[in-house]
Write a protein that binds this DNA or RNA. Sequence first.
DNA 1: ACTTATTTGTTCGTATGTATG
DNA 2: ACATACATACGAACAAATAAG
Lengths: 241, 241
Amino acid sequence: MTMLHEDTGVALWRRVADSLERGIADGHYRQGSKLPSETEIAELHGVNRHTVRRAIATLAERGLVRAERGSGTFVDSKRLTYPLRSRTRFSEIVGASGHEASGQLIATATEAAMSEIAAHLKIKAGTSLVRIDAMRAADGTPLCVSTNFLPAARFSDAGLIYERKRSMTKTLAHYGIRDYRRAWTRLTATIADASDALRLKLPVGSPVLVVDSLDVDTKGRPILTARTRFAAERVQFTVET
Amino acid sequence: MTMLHEDTGVALWRRVADSLERGIADGHYRQGSKLPSETEIAELHGVNRHTVRRAIATLAERGLVRAERGSGTFVDSKRLTYPLRSRTRFSEIVGASGHEASGQLIATATEAAMSEIAAHLKIKAGTSLVRIDAMRAADGTPLCVSTNFLPAARFSDAGLIYERKRSMTKTLAHYGIRDYRRAWTRLTATIADASDALRLKLPVGSPVLVVDSLDVDTKGRPILTARTRFAAERVQFTVET
DNA sequence: ACTTATTTGTTCGTATGTATG
DNA sequence: ACATACATACGAACAAATAAG
């Protein structure tokens, strides 16, 4: 709204910030690595050092970088890249990016299927379901909380199994399911509610990515439908088309 | 907390709300259609009508439904389903779901490529780029704002073309590009900044879905990289794997 | 231990475009 | 039309911390 440049409607410092954020997001500047010095960035973008400082300040506020007087500004982004594909397994994905995956049961119960969930799982409404609420973390930091529904007929006591195994893949393996795949994924974002914020250790008002999904076995039979809420600031999804 | 049930850590009213929201999200309850009556829903879920009322109240607060005394509760979710796939075109997607797509140029300029963007477009840093900031809407309601970068060598004056055509597909067609595809898509969420919130007509603190993408032509040459911010409350992505 | 160069942090000053009243 | 306030942007200088020799 104020001082513009080349009739683009965007402030200079914001353009610099966007550029840097992009560089961090796509791995051009890796986690822990040093950004170019403020004067270098200023020269690169053809702006004053103050402008760069303001850009960096906004990134630092959001926790993407950390400035150290005398040595430099370092990337401090723990955002995990999480591919959405046919084979989507939390522990695999987290493990592949060099972090230690862990899971924790929040609650489990047996419920009657609501019509919407029943439709997804291709069972009759009112059929018995196992509900599993779980929190998943990478290197101890909570990444997501998920609410899972499984047909109780096939997966009775799945909650108890999950509590022991702390992994959905292992729980399903206990029932003889050695492979399964993602049938569909739907995704949006919202503000974390109080309990999710607490479990994800997020400040109130933080955005979460809400992922609805259905997993099916090798024969295409639905086995699991879930709603998973990811701490948006800790994850970045990639879509493989 | 509140009233619990079957030692699941989730309040009854929240379970009902989740169930209804799910039904709306997956089209089980369509836009504009009437929900079952409160007493019906209460019977279906085996809860008291007060519980249902609380669930509906939270949905109404978030603008998903609209309760009308004497006639019923109606789905009022303008959340558009937006598939992320190889062929991702705004106007096509919006048009296919029965809405009228429109675009509006916010600003355009020629800039020198920052190294990150240059890497995506496979050009040398410092090469001239056309930057196009645009807002896109469905039936007049803003859906997203996007910042697009195109190599100026191939697409000089793309900004002017876009201003006239108000569609990126048509703009590219003007340069002889009849087909293109999405090379990659990265996705996360954050809180809308002031200018985005204004342009998307969102309250401050609203979440936006941030989509980074690269489009390439039929020969695989990069033609366009963009960062698009969607009003999270108005859109739902589907991932096709 | 000392020097030197680099880098972030801070404080002046100056100028300009936008919004408000 | 004018004054005021505010955010943006640039320039110069110096202080303080760090790293390298």
